[in-house]
Structure formats: C-alpha cells, structure tokens
Design a protein around this nucleic acid. Structure first.
Lengths: 336, 336
DNA sequence: TTGTAAGCGTTATCAT
DNA sequence: ATGATAACGCTTACAA
C-alpha cells in the first residue's frame, strides 16, 4: 500500500541504498537526487519511523511520568517539554500514575517496554525501594531525569526548586512588612515539597525570633468539601494571624475563599502570600503576591540534561540543578 | 546486548519460530514450553515492541490530540482514556495544540508520522478546511474519533454532550424555583460548545416567556485579571438578576468570587448554577448546584468506538453519540 | 557516489 | 507442533 524506499528506488531507477542515503542527508549525484526527489513526490513516500526505530535502535520517544494529569503544575511543565522535544523530533509517552507508588512502578515498566530513549519523572509520593525498575533503566543506560523532586535511593540528574528557601523568603517578606503572627496553609506532609515548604516557614520564624503558635500550621489537600473550615479556624484562635502564607495553588484559593467567607479583607485585615500562578488565580481581587516557580527553566533544564545524557555525555553525573522561585509582589500584603 | 528470540531459541534448543509462537500464545509441546520458559527466564528476554510493530504493521499507539493541557476537562478525560487503552496494551501519544488551528494540523501530521493506529481528537477552535491531513487518515483507514465537539466538514465517529439541552435544563431548574431574572456567564463564543450552551439558555428563556434583558449575557475567558468585573456589572443593572448560570469551570469560580466581592450571599441573595466539577470547586461554600459532564462515559464511548473501528468493524459509520449531562442539585439555588 | 547485501528483532508461511 | 526461511521497511558496511 504505502510506498517504501524500495518503491521509490524502483521508480527512480536507483538502488534502495541511494534512496536511504538521500533521506539521511548524504550527498547524491545531482541527476540522482532529482530522480529520487521526483520519485518520492510521485509515490507519496513517507518514511516509516517504526522501521527506522528498529534499525537505529532508538524509538524517538521520551517517557514523561506524571503523578496526576489534573494537577496543572505538572501539565504546565509538560506543555513546555513537548515543545522542546517536538523540535528534535521526539514524541512524548505520557503516563499518569495517579499518585500511586505501585502504579508508578507499572508505568515505568510500561515506558521501558515501549523502549523510550529517555525518561523524565515527577517522583511525587515515591520511594526508591518500591521502584526496582529504575535500576533496569540505569543498567541499560537509558537516562532518567527527575524533576520537581529528588528520589532518595536512586541517584540521577534532577531539576528541583529550592522550596524551603522559597518559603523562607515569602515569610521574610511578611516579616519585613511587620507581620509577626503568620500562619501557613500547607499541602499534605506526605509530599516532600510540602515538608520543605513548611521547613522554610519554621526557619524564617525562628530566624526572626517569632513564635509559631499552635494552630498556625494547617495542612490538607484543600480540594475536599469544607476543608477550608480549617483555615477559618485560624481566626477562632486567641491570637489570630495577621498574615497567611499558602503554599500551593489549592491552598491559595482555599485561603481566599475562607477569608471571603469570614468577610476579612485582603490585605486590609489579613495579608496573603500564595504559591503558583495558575488559572484562574489572576482573577482574584486584589492581585495576589505569589511565589512563582520557574516552569520554563525547569522544563528546559530537564530536557537539556536528558538530551545531553542521550548523546552519551555523562559529564558530572548525577547533576542536581536547584532553581530558585520568584516572589512576585502584588497587592495582597499590607505593611502593618 | 538484550536477548532476542534468537538467543532464547538457541538457549532452549528450539527454533526461533517456536519461541515466537510461544510468545504469541500458541500451544507448544510440554517439554518445549518448559525449555522456552526457562530460557526466557535465564536470558532475561524482553520482547521488542518496535520490531513487533514493524512486522505487524501496528504501532500500538493511539494519538490523543488536546487543545490545552492546562484545561482540566481534557485531562480528566485523558486520564480515563489512558486507563482504558493501557489495558489493551496501547500507549497514548499525547499532543497539545495550544488552541491553534495551525498547530493542530501539525500535531495531526506528527501523530500520523508516528503511525498511530487510531486517533482521538478534541477539535476545539478547529475547522475542517484548515485540516487537510484528516483526509489522509481517512484514506489510509486510520480511524479518527472526535470527542467533545464535532468538526463540520469531516464526518467521523464522534462523542459529544448535549450542551444546549444541558443549559436548557439548568435554566429551567432556576425557573422552576421561580427565578425569572436569570443571567448567563458564558465562555467565549469562539468555541462551539459555548455557542451551544448559550443557545440552550435562550431557548429556555423563550420557552418560558421570559425576557432576556440586555446585559444579562456575559462572555469571556474568566482567567484574566479583573474579568469578573463583568460579572459584578450585572448588579449595576436596573433589573439585576436573581440567578446566574455559569457555563464552565472558570466562569463558575469567577461568579463565586464576584459575588463574594459584592458581599452577595449564595443562595440567599443570588442563586447559582455552575458547570463542571473540578478541583477545588467542592471547597466552595455552599456546595454548588452543578451541571456535570459524563467524563467516564465520554472516554469509554470514544475508546470503544475507536477500538471497534480499529478492529475493522465499520458498522453505522459515522456514529455520533450524544450523551447527556447530569444536573446535580446541591445548595446554591434558592426557591423564590 | 553507488549498488549489493547483511542485518535490526520480529512474525508468518511453508513444508514436515 | 516444529524448523527453516522469507518478509516487514529500513540503515549501513563493503566493494566497486
């Protein structure tokens, strides 16, 4: 049905080797080049990437393993990854492991069976112990890059963000504005990044000799009904906070909704610093002061690292690149 | 390096044909089966899916073409698609076309070059005229299924939702509760589904002989700063609405935020019906009455249809399956 | 520069 | 049921 190099060769009256060489960018004699080009046109020849893959032993696929498609942070980075890799003619084999260690192992195996040339993993909730498959990638020299988090127990190139420092600076910013009673609305402590963000909060408070009252640390998913009652309860305390640092997108939205509910004005009554800038965060009034992650650079760095390893360049392996977040001052913090 | 059927055959002292047959589930003589199994164990043989793909002329990849990874609706369906296809050993070639006709055509070509066995497309913003590549899929008998929207000009199996009817019922529900002044906060009229949702609104109002005041129809993305000022302006009208029907996730959030801003209580001051139930919608107080789309069934239907076509069963082609949304009554509608 | 032929790791068709 | 062998569509020595 579909034309093959053989058909093209026949049509052009050259050998199939010549056609193949043409396709791979080798120099041809002028008349032959013309004949081949015409034959390709005439036959509607399209190269078969699968056959190429077998022959070259490269699938031209990159596995991208994601905790949850619903979490826009991962997908925002994946959008950029796709653009980068598409330019190099790689396609993405996306896998969602639904935040489940067991499914993660499954998905890694799945990607390996598909013979991906490289792997980018967001290792949320994971531990190396439950992921023996990773050693197989290492053994077969299939490069793996972690993004967003490390995975203790398996050392490989990683691109992360300094979460503790991000928190430190956010809290510090509040302190600079004379806030002393600062609460944190944090993601689940099961996730490494949230433990880090919490650590940065404590660090900042300690550094500036501020006490952390019991009840100022709230942790949750903030996607379940009524979960922001937890946030509201901050204001039942004898010493309610004057500022709230919310450490992710859902916590930020939840905080805003809770303050609305309590008829507390941002920033007049309570100052707020949020985390991550995803739709529809920008719609919120007043514009929120936010910690923003360098999504582009994370993606670009991870991609570059992976491509470098795939080229066989193992310089400085394993490299851990730590990027900094950016605090963007808007209007949700008031100086006391 | 990696063991092949040949290696296994040698190790087991059988022909490679026997090994291949074993792998493909044919009956073997007991002793041979044992030998082959042992050889597979011993050699750590893993089948090479790429070689299989070439030989069988089936890539075992399904292209899934998505307007935007950031839009959780698409990703929610994709999550389900992935589960369904994984069970059949298909992998997903996900492509994001960033809501751009031109990039959509590119991505379709990309998927075709990768020899996907089938295609699922969310054709937002698209028109068949700008997508000549679709005809190539048809010509080569690569099944294409549209989901969420049709694409006039290219007829193929499609799974959609009755958006107009969804709106009709939502508005009707408000009318049943004695509301007569009902506003709609709608997505961009550039998108077919929003034109449909608006049509349903008008239909319902007309059916019940209710006037639609000028200024009751708001359209926008509701992700840009200050866009909910549009919603707030509803209440500057001489005849402000007593109920708002928001036709997507962002419109719903925007509406809630705007009402908070205006210190209007839901449902006491204003009744609200929203659309789509994605995080963190459930966190909103009171629980919102929502139009919910049958994500599972959409995904399952599209997948079934595609698999059927890939099996060569072209019965009733092209099939357009229209599913119904579900109105879930919660607490954001008050009877007047 | 070109043609020939071997080979990638499979599946599938023959006889046997 | 099995072995031998061709074939899938391509790349890549090797010789010419």
């Amino acid at each position: 049905m579909a034309a093959t190099v053989r058909d093209v060769a026949k049509l052009a009256n050259v050998s199939l080797g010549t056609v193949s060489r043409y396709l791979n960018g080798y120099q041809l004699r002028e008349d032959n080049r013309l004949k081949v080009e015409q034959a390709i046109q005439a036959s509607g020849f399209k190269e078969n990437m699968l056959a190429q893959a077998v022959r070259r032993n490269r699938s031209m696929m990159i596995g991208v393993i994601i905790p949850q498609y619903r979490a826009v942070f991962f997908m925002a980075i994946t959008t950029i990854l796709e653009q980068i890799f598409e330019q190099k003619n790689y396609s993405l084999l996306l896998c969602n492991y639904e935040n489940d260690r067991h499914r993660l192992q499954q998905k890694l195996r799945f990607a390996k069976e598909r013979l991906v040339d490289g792997l980018i993993v967001f290792p949320s909730y994971a531990d190396a112990g439950s992921l023996p498959i990773l050693e197989e990638f290492a053994a077969e020299d299939i490069p793996v890059v972690f993004i967003d988090q490390l995975l203790p127990g398996f050392e490989t190139d990683s691109v992360i963000v300094d979460n503790a420092h991000a928190s430190f600076r956010a809290v510090e910013q509040l302190i600079f504005n004379k806030h002393t009673r600062i609460a944190i609305v944090n993601g689940s402590p099961d996730v490494y990044v949230y433990r880090e963000r919490l650590r940065g909060y404590y660090d900042a408070m300690r550094t500036y000799n501020l006490p952390v009252e019991s009840g100022w640390v709230k942790e949750g998913s903030f996607i379940e009904p009524g979960e922001y009652v937890m946030i509201e309860s901050l204001f039942d305390l004898p010493q309610p906070p004057t500022a709230i640092y919310a450490t992710n997108y859902f916590a930020t939205i939840g905080t805003v909704l809770a303050l609305h509910e309590l008829r507390l004005n941002i920033p007049h009554d309570v100052s707020v610093i949020g985390f991550d800038r995803f739709d529809p965060i920008d719609v919120i009034e007043p514009p929120l002061t936010l910690v923003e992650q360098p999504l582009e650079r994370m993606a670009q760095t991870a991609a570059d690292l992976l491509l470098q390893r795939m080229r066989g360049d193992h310089k400085d392996f394993p490299q851990v690149v730590t990027l900094n977040t950016k605090m963007v001052m808007r209007e949700s913090v008031r100086a006391l």
